[in-house]
């Protein structure tokens, strides 16, 4: 069980970050999106191969009005 944006999220063994993002409807080409796993930025180029630990904390962020 991982945590994505504060909510519990079931992952299949060996599931990559790209696969989880795809389930959230975030394509590898989505504009204005960035991802952190356990407090570190995961560059877009690494989404495809990034293996998620069982207790990974994932933050999927995008532009919001502010400032």
């Amino acid at each position: 069980m991982i945590v994505v944006n504060g909510e519990s999220f079931d992952v299949r063994p060996g599931e990559t970050l790209a696969a989880v993002l795809d389930r959230l409807d975030v394509s590898p080409h989505a504009r204005g999106v960035a991802v952190a796993v356990d407090g570190e930025v995961v560059p877009r180029a690494c989404w495809e191969l990034f293996a998620l630990a069982e207790d990974a904390r994932v933050e999927v962020l995008t532009a919001m009005q502010g400032g």
Partner: peptide, 15 residues
Amino acid sequence: VALRRIDPAARGSLV
């Protein structure tokens, strides 16, 4: 712009 958790219901339009 600010950076916040993605909202699947309303995405991309600000950018």
